[in-house]
Amino acid sequence: MTVLPKDIPGDSLKVTVGTANGKPGDTVTVPVTFADVAKMKNVGTCNFYLGYDASLLEVVSVDAGPIVKNAAVNFSSSASNGTISFLFLDNTITDELITADGVFANIKFKLKSVTAKTTTPVTFKDGGAFGDGTMSKIASVTKTNGSVTIDP
């Protein structure tokens, strides 16, 4: 049996954390987006972790974005102690894959008090994996961190 590389060099799934701005007490939304989904033969499963400074940001909610089908079954998240974990699994293993680019999740943060303008990162942590529509590992994932700026 011969195994051929399935990824064209330079191609990767792009996962990007967005940015937001606000004043202390505001609730802002930071999107997590996927790009080049079709090039990577869709997404059938993924789990990953984001870190944030809990002294500056309070997670209000984490909701599935419009590219997630049947989110009540296929999407899960949790947030505590400065870490947000995400889990997606197409429970049907074929019919509810992520097949389009767009917003995977929206994180709502309540901004805490600061004395001066502060930009705090929302960054990928170690761990996690992504699988394509056949549940094979997506070897190349380009992750881009985001941030939230609090301006009193």
Rank of each mutant, 00 (worst) to 15 (best):
V3Y: 07
S78Y: 15
I67C: 12
G10M: 11
L57D: 07
I107E: 01
A116W: 03
T115P: 06
F88Q: 00
G102Y: 00
I93K: 00
A20P: 12
I138N: 02
V141H: 02
F86L: 05
M135P: 00
E96A: 07
S140T: 10
G10K: 10
V28L: 09
T120V: 07
P121R: 12
G128F: 02
T16S: 12
I93F: 15
N145I: 04
G18Q: 11
F48D: 04
L50N: 09
A100K: 04
E96I: 00
L13S: 07
V73P: 11
S147F: 06
Y52Q: 10
K143F: 01
G44Y: 00
F88P: 00
L89D: 00
T33A: 14
F48G: 12
L97D: 01
M135G: 02
V148F: 04
D63T: 14
G127I: 00
L13T: 09
L87Q: 01
V114K: 14
P24I: 13
G65H: 11
T94A: 04
D132Q: 04
G65K: 08
D11H: 13
S55A: 08
V43G: 10
P9S: 09
L56W: 08
F88W: 02
F75R: 02
T29I: 10
V114H: 08
T16Q: 10
G65F: 13
K41I: 11
T92Q: 00
T149F: 15
V30Q: 14
I138V: 08
F86D: 01
K112S: 03
F124M: 01
T142F: 04
K125F: 03
D95M: 01
S12K: 08
T27R: 09
L97Q: 04
S136L: 04
D132H: 02
G10V: 10
K125D: 02
T19V: 13
F34P: 02
E58A: 10
A20I: 11
K112C: 00
F34S: 05
K6L: 13
N145K: 07
F130C: 04
S113V: 06
P152R: 15
A129G: 04
T92Y: 00
T27S: 13
G22C: 05
F109R: 02
K137V: 00
F75T: 02
S140C: 04
N81K: 15
G146A: 06
K41S: 09
V148S: 07
A64R: 06
K23I: 09
P9I: 07
P121G: 07
T123R: 14
F86K: 03
T27E: 11
G65Y: 08
T29Q: 06
V59I: 14
M135N: 01
I138F: 04
P31N: 07
V30F: 12
S136E: 00
V59F: 11
V59P: 09
T134D: 01
T119K: 14
S55K: 12
D7E: 14
V68L: 12
F104Y: 14
K125H: 03
F124G: 01
F86G: 03
N70D: 08
D36V: 13
G25A: 10
S85P: 03
V17G: 12
N91A: 01
D101W: 00
V59R: 09
S12M: 08
V28P: 10
L111N: 04
I150G: 15
K110P: 01
T99H: 07
E58K: 10
V148K: 00
T118N: 06
T120L: 04
K110G: 02
N106A: 06
A64H: 09
S140M: 09
K110S: 04
F124H: 04
C46V: 00
K112Q: 06
T99V: 07
V60K: 11
G44E: 04
N21K: 11
V17C: 14
M40H: 07
C46A: 01
L111C: 06
S147W: 09
G25N: 09
T115Y: 03
V15T: 09
A129V: 04
T19C: 11
K108Y: 05
T94E: 01
D101E: 06
K143E: 04
N81H: 15
T134L: 04
F48Y: 13
S113A: 07
L97F: 00
I67H: 14
T120Q: 03
L89S: 01
L50G: 04
